[in-house]
């Protein structure tokens, strides 16, 4: 059997390598000796935390440590990236892993058991999915937003909200249960009162249902679509690539964003993060990206 030895060795080596890689992967969230997001003893780093957290934002006196996953709506990508960075600056022993996607996708993931300590949704319906599943309670609204029509800057097919019903417009929306897709369809339906058949005419122009608001925005930025419905905050990020067409306020009520801690035994870090989002500092960051106060 001698000639089989090298093969066995190879297999064993491959497994050893695999084990090594997966171990080092586990250890990656560096510095914190406890891999789980458990609050550690208050004695060690109190001074450290108080000097770092000079702002009034952090409500806790003790040093927070641990890693949490925050699942947040795509439209929050930029704002929450900055909020997480500010939170980590104030609490150096914490790590916030951000998971962005459509709120409906995130809700599906959480209900199916995906790890998440905080859920920030772009509408109440998807938050309700997680709350109804018994995985979160007491959501709090932390921001509002408005939907707009985004069109490529070099394409003047759509000049007003009514133009969406013109035949030949290539319209891209988010999926029906993705919050921004839902808000858009509500606005179209609301317009039916004044213009019967409006909603039907607009939806006949639909060429694609995208997975989330950022995917809609990309299709518009690339000029593939003549128009798409996104949040005002997303359109602002595109800058010159995108032209914004307002949707009458009476047709599109503001989008509201609820946030909640997920799970029965929320970690201190998760609670502190939610508090930070609701704090003055968190609100200031959200406002800087164009979100309005709740």
């Amino acid at each position: 059997m001698k000639r089989f030895r090298p093969l066995w060795l190879l297999v064993l080596a491959a497994f050893a390598l695999f084990a090594l890689v997966s171990c080092s992967g586990d250890e990656e969230p560096e510095s914190s000796p406890t891999p789980t997001p458990t609050p550690t003893a208050t004695t060690t780093a109190t001074a450290d935390a108080t000097t770092a957290a000079t702002t009034e934002a952090t409500v806790t006196e003790e040093a927070l440590s641990g890693t949490i996953v925050v699942s947040a709506a795509s439209s929050l990508t930029d704002a929450f990236t900055e909020i997480a960075a500010a939170f980590q600056d104030a609490n150096p022993d914490t790590q916030i892993d951000l998971n962005f996607g459509s709120s409906s996708e995130l809700a599906s993931q959480i209900v199916e058991g995906a790890p998440a300590e905080v859920f920030a949704s772009a509408n109440d319906a998807q938050m309700a999915v997680v709350v109804d599943a018994g995985l979160a309670s007491d959501p709090q609204t932390f921001a509002r937003n408005r939907i707009v029509v985004a069109a490529p800057a070099d394409n003047d097919l759509v000049q007003a909200f009514e133009d969406l019903a013109e035949p030949g417009v290539r319209l891209v929306l988010a999926g029906e249960e993705v919050p921004v897709g839902d808000y858009a369809r509500q606005a179209f339906a609301n317009a039916d009162a004044a213009t019967p058949g409006f909603s039907e005419a607009v939806l006949a122009n639909l060429v694609s249902e995208e997975a989330n608001v950022r995917a809609v925005l990309t299709k518009v930025e690339l000029g593939e679509a003549d128009a798409g419905v996104v949040y005002g905050t997303d359109a602002a990020i595109s800058g010159d690539a995108v032209r914004v067409v307002d949707i009458p306020e009476d047709l599109a009520p503001p989008a509201s964003y609820p946030i909640a801690v997920v799970g029965d035994e929320p970690s201190d870090v998760a609670q502190a993060f939610v508090a930070f989002v609701l704090s003055e500092d968190g609100q200031a960051i959200l406002a800087s990206f164009g979100f309005s106060a709740p």
């Binding site: 409906s104 599906s108 999915v129 249960e177 993705v178």
Partner: peptide, 8 residues
Amino acid sequence: FERTSLGL
């Protein structure tokens, strides 16, 4: 999968 009304 993204339709929470359908669950999985």
